[in-house]
Design a protein around this nucleic acid. Structure first.
Lengths: 325, 325
DNA sequence: TTGTAAGCGTTATCAC
DNA sequence: GTGATAACGCTTACAA
């Protein structure tokens, strides 16, 4: 591959000049620019970003760690983050932790070695202490690591409220909350808090069910719902803490002959675009995924520039009425 | 951040020695190793991969371009590719082309600038000529670019055969094929070829429907199915060229009061794990996504090493009987 | 306005 | 076995 030297040689100027043209710095005559551009063209020259990054001590790469890239919610998050990163000249190094603790630790090390400019943490397998050692611009999703690391989340409590009130409004008498393993540090737990409080407030019987393992083992959601229907045949409302869980709940209900929404109502969470893939459409509490993704990138960039950033970035949720309530 | 120099200083050796320890090259006394490792530990040293890459002219980064990261099929593909890349010490730079031609071209430039060791192309928006200019190890999914670029695909023809024969075996008389826009270069077109041939062979009426635009505009699939049911009320079998399309078809059929599979049968393609999220479960022609992903990474690594690689990498498909047939 | 040269943090080629 | 030192390809004072 041609280097800046080759370009300089061909254009009959110094490497400094080529570099200036490349970065549009300083004063350059139009004629000179043309000469240099033409030389680049002829050589099919591409500046070596590795060398640039090394020299500038800035890689323009953002590391993104997610627990499960194939999960629709994270798929959309990845997609949106990539889009905004790209818009601002950042590239994305993707890491899929699979909620594996060792892997996540290795990934953080790797990202540091790669000299990424910042890390967006969508996965939270490690302890708070481990994250403190990062010493890089970081922003997390749905978890508060420390007072110095900004986090992004939807208004989880409000979301739980909306969902639970909706079930109550629709006449449910006995409702269940289904979720993955409730890690105490996760802000999503507030959905459950709201669920419990609103249910009590409105005089509804309520049940909590969650998977045993911290993970995304989809069949578990199915079994969980089956157990729910067996142990509590009179349950008439479900608040699932993700649209995927809601979809499994819907499937199980239908398979067991429960009519949705007549016999049992279901509300999901997230608002993934795949929610309209079901019949009936899922009712859900929607998070503004694209805006949250944009904010994540913005917060990294702001930190890179040394700007102060807000620690708490809570986004409004919206109840989307589908056919399951 | 500490550099190799700092480590050398602290360990009382030269940078050469530290580098040797780092790369396990040459003969090193145990004692020396220990000294160096301890110095690294104390300084919390992480080798700078940018500098390494520059020096070795090898970045250990693979670029992955997909058309739609939030699509379940690509989500799984990304996830699997990432996993195998990681296993072999490669990192993944993710690009989401959104089937935007200019963006895809920019991405290829960007990946070349980033000095990635190879590119896995899951998106194919450009013309063959554009791809020829890459001059890097490349492997494509589902498209034959040239005689020099290896490609990976499922046995599309066989898949189309399996699906169509299944519909025929189950007693369908009039079947439809629904797909996205059929780009002539895409190997997925063979599913349609098989569909037409088998349908003719078995004496079935058959209809082809596809979206107008090259893209993943999900609502289009819904409208397409609606049109199908209106224009051909007697259709009793659908072969959808992806599980997502199949899911939309299922939804529309159910919403229109058609019983699946009694009145109309549906077969999808891909075998994404989300297919069991529907009721009934989708019948599908499954591609071995994980194996294909692994092969993609292997083919890049082989090319990096200068090994000859097979151009044609066709993976067997498997019919998975769900409840929609 | 343009050029020289040092430096970014490694690896690799020599000597010793 | 270990250590200088020149690359790797770029940016950026500092000169001119």
């Amino acid at each position: 591959m041609p280097t800046i030297k080759d370009v300089a040689l061909k254009a009959g100027v110094s490497v400094t000049t080529v570099s200036r043209v490349l970065n549009n710095r300083g004063y350059l005559s139009e004629e000179l620019k043309k000469k240099v551009y033409s030389a680049m063209e002829q050589l099919n020259y591409r500046p070596n970003e590795l060398a640039r990054s090394l020299s500038r001590s800035k890689s323009n790469i953002i590391g993104l760690i997610v627990p499960h890239a194939a999960h629709p919610f994270f798929g959309e998050l990845i997609s949106s983050i990539e889009e905004h990163a790209y818009l601002h000249g950042y590239r994305l190094l993707l890491c899929n932790s699979h909620l594996n603790r060792q892997k996540e630790a290795e990934y953080i090390d790797m990202l540091r070695s790669s000299r990424v400019d910042g890390i967006i943490l969508g996965s939270h397998t490690l302890e708070v202490e481990d994250y403190r050692q990062i010493h890089l611009p970081v922003v997390t999703f749905d978890r508060r690591i420390s007072a110095e690391v900004p986090y992004i989340c939807s208004d989880n409590y409000k979301g739980g409220e909306l969902a639970t009130n909706l079930l109550a409004d629709k006449g449910c008498r006995k409702i269940a909350h289904i979720s993955g393993h409730p890690h105490p540090d996760l802000l999503a737990l507030k959905r459950l808090d709201a669920f419990k409080e609103i249910a009590a407030l409105r005089g509804l019987q309520h049940i909590e069910m969650h998977t045993d393992l911290h993970g995304f083992h989809f069949p578990d959601y199915e079994r969980l719902t089956e157990r729910l229907l067996e142990e509590h045949p009179d349950v008439d409302g479900i608040f699932a803490s993700s649209d995927i869980i809601a979809a499994y709940a819907l499937k199980v209900c239908q398979a067991r002959g429960r009519r949705v929404p007549q016999d049992i109502k279901i509300v999901g969470y997230d608002g993934v675009s795949l929610r309209d893939l079901f019949s009936p459409d899922l009712t859900t509490v929607s998070q503004p995924i694209a805006e949250m993704a944009q904010k994540a990138v913005d917060l990294i960039m702001a930190q890179v520039q040394g700007d102060a950033v807000p620690m708490e970035n809570i986004f409004p949720v919206e109840l989307i009425q589908g056919g399951t309530t």
